[in-house]
Structures are given as structure tokens and as C-alpha cells.
């Protein structure tokens, strides 16, 4: 009797496990498939990318990844007679994206960490108001600020410059840096710092010798999210750059109107472009929820 019941329970458990795995596999396929297909397409020749029905088995080629950097001559599209030079010379765009991302994150991190530390430890007058004010700037739809900034940049000579984009990205990522870093500072007990201050230590030294080392992991996570934010930004880059300062997303979006573009080339550029995200998702997994809510929701572990 008992044996039979055990048996039945065991079978139900197995069935449950099978169902769980089945659902998990379906879910993973659904969310990973477009990314897989993107990478797969980047390894196809032009003809293979244009095959109907779509090719599932083919001999992969890395030619696209070489072509996007090295091929200079324009390709004449057979049907439309259009000149296609868009998907080549990608290094300029990657260089621009890299410079802008790196500089703006360096500045935003420094300014943001300082402000976050001050808000967390000293809580000067109006901390709450200022914090919510800073947060609310992030809720602004980019398009609302884009119009005035476009005209300012034109008249100030910041249009089509690296500095202009860097300034803008610094500003747009400050709220994130401040809120995120504050949430990490808030988690560290302040006893040691207080003791040091009472002993008459220099507050600047207390900051970088005692407080900062304790939030290094948080600082890393914050920088990771900042990289994604800046690297992915599109609207301002679209409005404020021309060929010399154009970043990768603008270049990719520029391929939209074309007829008969070589999807293999586009996919190769996109693959390189989303590579940081594919790496960072593993690194930032623990902090994903916190990062997407400005540190307001910590999440379970």
C-alpha cells in the first residue's frame, strides 16, 4: 500500500520535473532565438542570408566580420542599381562609440560617486528633495529635452562634436550613478568612518581610504550598467552627430531605408555591437533588478 503511494508520488515528481524542463527550454528558445539568429546570419554569405526558406544548416564564414572593417569599395546593388557602402568602414563608428562611452562614464562615475557618498553619509539639507529631483530627470522622455538641446548644441557649436555627446551622456547617467551608488553606500555600516572622523581624520581621506574600498563591487556593477546605457543610446546620437562623430547605433539605424541590403554585413556589425551586452548579462545578473530600478528595489540576493 505504502509502496504504491510512494510510487505514485515519485511518478508525479518525475512528471513535474519533465514539465519544468520542457517549459524552461521553450522559454529559453523564445528569448534567445533572435540573438542566435542574428549571430547565425552574421556567419552567412549574402546569398545564404537571402535564401527562402531560411537556411538552418550552412557552412559558416567569417567574411562579413572582415568586410565590415576592410572593404572600402562600394557595392552596386544588382536590382536597384543603388550604391551600397553603408556596411563598411565600421571602425570609425566603433571608435566614436567607444570614446564617447568611455569618457562620459569616467566623468559620470566620479561625480556620481561623490554626490552619492555625500547624500548617504552627510545627508545635507534637502537630500530627499534633491534625490527625487535627480530621479525625476531620468523619467523625462528623451524626446522632450531633445528639441531644445538640438538647438542649443547648434548655436553653441557642440553639434557634431565628441565633447557635446560626452557632456550629454554624463548628465543623463548621473541620476543612475547617484541612486545606484547611494544604495550601495547605504548598505555599508558607517561606524568606522564615524570613528575616524571623530578622531579628526581628513574627510577626504575617510572617503577614499575607508568608504570607497567597501563598495568596490557595487561600483563595478554601476559602471557595468552605465556602459550599457551609453553604448545603447540612440536618439541624441542620431540628432547630434554627423558622419565624423556618428556612433554605431546611428549607423545601424541608417541601414533601415535601404532596399536589398546585405543582411550578413548588418548582422556582423550588430553582433559586435551587442557583444558587451552579451558578456555583461552574466556579470550583472545578480544586480539586474537593482540596476533596472535605480537601486530602489534590491531584489532577493
Amino acid at each position: 500500500m505504502a509502496n504504491l503511494q510512494n510510487n505514485r508520488r515519485g511518478r508525479r515528481k518525475i512528471l513535474r520535473t519533465v514539465l519544468i524542463y520542457f517549459a524552461t527550454i521553450i522559454a529559453v528558445i523564445f528569448f534567445i532565438f533572435p540573438i542566435y539568429w542574428l549571430i547565425a546570419t552574421s556567419l552567412k554569405t549574402r546569398a545564404q542570408a537571402f535564401s527562402t526558406p531560411p537556411l538552418f544548416v550552412w557552412e559558416p564564414t567569417v567574411r562579413n566580420f572582415i568586410d565590415i572593417f576592410l572593404k572600402r569599395q562600394t557595392e552596386i546593388e544588382a536590382i536597384t542599381g543603388q550604391e551600397l557602402e553603408l556596411a563598411t568602414g565600421a571602425e570609425t563608428f566603433f571608435y566614436n562609440s567607444f570614446i564617447v562611452t568611455f569618457s562620459s562614464i569616467a566623468i559620470a562615475t566620479v561625480i556620481g560617486v561623490l554626490a552619492a557618498y555625500s547624500f548617504s553619509r552627510y545627508q545635507p539639507h534637502g537630500t530627499n528633495t534633491l534625490m527625487f529631483f535627480i530621479l525625476s530627470t531620468r523619467m523625462l522622455p528623451a524626446i522632450v529635452v531633445a528639441i531644445p538641446i538640438y538647438f542649443f548644441y547648434r548655436s553653441l557649436g557642440l553639434y557634431n562634436t565628441h565633447i557635446g555627446l560626452v557632456l550629454l551622456y554624463t548628465m543623463f547617467n548621473l541620476p543612475f550613478a547617484v541612486w545606484m551608488m547611494k544604495s550601495f553606500f547605504d548598505e555599508v555600516p558607517r561606524d568606522i568612518e564615524q570613528a575616524a572622523l571623530v578622531d579628526g581624520s581628513n574627510p577626504i581621506k575617510v572617503f577614499y581610504k575607508i568608504a570607497l574600498p567597501q563598495v568596490l563591487v557595487g561600483l563595478g556593477a554601476t559602471i557595468g550598467f552605465l556602459i550599457i546605457n551609453v553604448w545603447n543610446e540612440f536618439l541624441f546620437a542620431l540628432l547630434l552627430t554627423e558622419r565624423a562623430t556618428r556612433t554605431v547605433p546611428v549607423m545601424i539605424a541608417g541601414t533601415r531605408g535601404e532596399v536589398g541590403i546585405n543582411w550578413g554585413l548588418i548582422a556582423a556589425i550588430e553582433t559586435l555591437y551587442i557583444l558587451p551586452a552579451l558578456v555583461l548579462i552574466f556579470v550583472l545578473q545578480r544586480f539586474l533588478l537593482r540596476g533596472m530600478t535605480f537601486g530602489t528595489v534590491r531584489g532577493a540576493k
Binding site: P34, A253, I274
Partner: peptide
């Protein structure tokens, strides 16, 4: 794997 789309650039998503 399921959360990967969250970090992928919107422009890449749209064009692809």
C-alpha cells in the same frame, strides 16, 4: 539566458 534581451541595444533589436 532569458534575461539577455534586457541589455541588448534597442536599435539592434529594432533593425534585426
Amino acid at each position: 539566458l532569458v534575461t539577455t534581451p534586457l541589455l541588448v541595444a534597442p536599435v539592434a533589436v529594432g533593425i534585426f
